Measured scan of single mutants.
Amino acid sequence: MATGGRRGAAAAPLLVAVAALLLGAAGHLYPGEVCPGMDIRNNLTRLHELENCSVIEGHLQILLMFKTRPEDFRDLSFPKLIMITDYLLLFRVYGLESLKDLFPNLTVIRGSRLFFNYALVIFEMVHLKELGLYNLMNITRGSVRIEKNNELCYLATIDWSRILDSVEDNYIVLNKDDNEECGDICPGTAKGKTNCPATVINGQFVERCWTHSHCQKVCPTICKSHGCTAEGLCCHSECLGNCSQPDDPTKCVACRNFYLDGRCVETCPPPYYHFQDWRCVNFSFCQDLHHKCKNSRRQGCHQYVIHNNKCIPECPSGYTMNSSNLLCTPCLGPCPKVCHLLEGEKTIDSVTSAQELRGCTVINGSLIINIRGGNNLAAELEANLGLIEEISGYLKIRRSYALVSLSFFRKLRLIRGETLEIGNYSFYALDNQNLRQLWDWSKHNLTITQGKLFFHYNPKLCLSEIHKMEEVSGTKGRQERNDIALKTNGDQASCENELLKFSYIRTSFDKI
């Protein structure tokens, strides 16, 4: 039985969820670079991206490699990797027998973001014989899940209580170790020597080791999670996991709180800001991140802002960003909400898709409305799209047979046209069989910064309504002859009103 693990408890099935942008060198404390989270699957090609990484700022997932063999891993080693800020997950990587050479110096898994409450997941690794993470000293947050690894031993010899604050939620089941077939031998045991430290858990006094050649490092209890030197002297209180010299914040392997210019500090002093819960960055760093993602459509890219001495992905609820200094300031009234469309555009074809934009005031991208039916549609669209004030790209209304009016965009005031449909149009209306009105132009103002209007096959939309939009939106004169079809717009509506004058002759039985 794995020490510190839980057996036999019912657990939810383990679901495996399925960018080499360097964020800056980590400095003297770390020998390499800070790398983003990685999802490495199918083959070993991307694994080489770990070569210079000291910190993975995010998670590391290595999974679904069915053609790899043990010899493929023999020359692979990433000794610079010290810390993973989120979680480490391995799933069905064939041929991998140990992690001792792959990650010989991995010391800390912070667990800032977890995989279903777990910071370390080893699942269905069919050839893994031992973990071998002999320098792993601290899992700051989260638990361990090690399950269905039929060859995995050296679990009962690990004292997880020396690595985690609590072992109650560890789930370590259905491994070879369960069948008591392992016969784990710690260093020196074969020669009758006791080389590794022994600890007591559940009444068992057991030597602690990761492999037959690597003991588990056990520091004096007084050192807590700070770690200790090879001689057993406690590291500085700002260290986490390990250090090369005692009581020196510049000799830590990793930091308990924050890293700044080669030393570990309790908090980031001005003019620095907390970033990702582990390091200090200056304003320029946060500003660069903001600008890199301002026009990016890459998933996970955030326009970072500053709030409460932190550089964070977005302002919290009730705050909006001051564009001059990136500071989050309290909103006066309802907060603006910028919604970034991942692929640059979004099609609204149902109430469900409209709900995804609920509360958005600025759309960074283009909207395509293609709704053919739905219950209580006008009210639903207004509830979900009615706060949109600005669209950076274009607005396209296409084959939306259920629409009679666009009044559900009740606050839309600006279409920038930074991206144009077919390279020309910022407003595009095609084949809307029941569209009769755009907006009530006596109450609604709309500016279209650039781009043209396109109207074709809107049989109940009168040309007068379209011409009014040209005047109000500032697009009059931009359109070419064929942009607004004269014969297919309003051709099934009563669009022309003329005053009919009647004269009559009164007659009676005795007068003409």
Score class of each variant (00 low, 15 high):
residue 192 G to M: 14
residue 129 K to A: 13
residue 271 P to A: 03
residue 220 P to M: 02
residue 282 N to R: 15
residue 110 R to I: 09
residue 127 H to T: 13
residue 60 L to K: 01
residue 38 M to N: 09
residue 258 F to C: 05
residue 278 W to S: 07
residue 307 H to K: 03
residue 290 H to V: 09
residue 155 L to E: 09
residue 115 F to Q: 03
residue 203 G to A: 11
residue 228 C to M: 03
residue 308 N to S: 05
residue 304 Y to M: 05
residue 330 P to I: 05
residue 322 N to R: 06
residue 165 D to Y: 14
residue 97 E to M: 03
residue 73 F to A: 12
residue 96 L to R: 01
residue 133 L to M: 04
residue 187 P to Q: 03
residue 96 L to H: 01
residue 84 I to R: 00
residue 60 L to H: 00
residue 335 C to L: 03
residue 234 C to S: 04
residue 80 K to G: 10
residue 64 L to Y: 13
residue 149 N to R: 01
residue 262 G to R: 04
residue 102 L to A: 03
residue 162 R to I: 05
residue 31 P to T: 11
residue 191 K to I: 12
residue 65 M to Y: 15
residue 336 P to H: 10
residue 239 C to G: 01
residue 250 T to P: 00
residue 217 K to Q: 14
residue 223 C to G: 02
residue 277 D to R: 07
residue 122 I to H: 00
residue 120 L to R: 01
residue 322 N to F: 11
residue 195 N to E: 14
residue 199 T to W: 11
residue 310 K to M: 05
residue 323 S to D: 04
residue 288 D to K: 11
residue 240 L to G: 08
residue 327 L to S: 04
residue 115 F to R: 05
residue 194 T to A: 06
residue 128 L to R: 01
residue 71 E to A: 11
residue 243 C to P: 00
residue 308 N to R: 09
residue 127 H to S: 15
residue 316 P to Q: 03
residue 261 D to C: 01
residue 60 L to P: 00
residue 197 P to C: 05
residue 56 I to H: 00
residue 94 Y to V: 10
residue 124 E to V: 02
residue 273 Y to M: 15
residue 271 P to L: 02
residue 171 Y to R: 01
residue 266 E to S: 14
residue 271 P to C: 02
residue 261 D to K: 00
residue 157 T to N: 13
residue 99 L to A: 03
residue 105 N to T: 03
residue 42 N to K: 06
residue 209 C to T: 04
residue 88 L to F: 09
residue 48 H to R: 06
residue 88 L to G: 00
residue 57 E to Y: 07
residue 116 F to G: 11
residue 121 V to F: 02
residue 70 P to V: 15
residue 265 V to D: 00
residue 205 F to K: 10
residue 235 C to N: 01
residue 319 Y to L: 03
residue 31 P to I: 07
residue 156 A to R: 11
residue 163 I to K: 02
residue 28 H to S: 05
residue 157 T to I: 08
residue 207 E to S: 06
residue 190 A to W: 08
residue 160 W to E: 01
residue 180 E to G: 07
residue 334 P to R: 12
residue 319 Y to V: 03
residue 168 E to W: 11
residue 250 T to E: 04
residue 140 T to N: 10
residue 307 H to S: 05
residue 300 G to C: 07
residue 124 E to N: 11
residue 171 Y to H: 08
residue 76 L to M: 05
residue 150 N to K: 10
residue 210 W to L: 07
residue 284 S to P: 03
residue 28 H to Q: 08
residue 176 K to G: 04
residue 173 V to E: 13
residue 307 H to L: 05
residue 108 V to N: 15
residue 191 K to E: 09
residue 194 T to H: 12
residue 284 S to G: 13
residue 307 H to E: 04
residue 179 N to G: 13
residue 89 L to P: 00
residue 129 K to N: 04
residue 265 V to Q: 01
residue 275 F to L: 09
residue 309 N to E: 09
residue 156 A to P: 12
residue 283 F to I: 14
residue 36 P to A: 09
residue 211 T to D: 13
residue 165 D to F: 14
residue 41 R to F: 14
residue 309 N to L: 03
residue 192 G to Q: 15
residue 53 C to T: 00
residue 182 C to T: 09
residue 178 D to E: 13
residue 256 R to Q: 11
residue 106 L to A: 00
residue 327 L to V: 03
residue 185 I to Q: 13
residue 185 I to H: 05
residue 162 R to T: 07
residue 242 N to P: 10
residue 301 C to S: 05
residue 53 C to L: 00
residue 209 C to A: 05
residue 35 C to E: 00
residue 320 T to R: 09
residue 115 F to N: 01
residue 269 P to V: 08
residue 75 D to E: 13
residue 218 V to C: 10
residue 335 C to N: 08
residue 63 L to A: 06
residue 105 N to D: 04
residue 225 S to R: 10
residue 63 L to N: 02
residue 283 F to V: 10
residue 117 N to M: 12
residue 205 F to Q: 06
residue 224 K to T: 08
residue 182 C to F: 15
residue 203 G to R: 09
residue 134 Y to W: 14
residue 48 H to L: 11
residue 323 S to I: 06
residue 261 D to L: 01
residue 185 I to P: 09
residue 197 P to N: 15
residue 182 C to S: 14
residue 99 L to R: 00
residue 90 L to E: 00
residue 121 V to D: 00
residue 241 G to N: 05
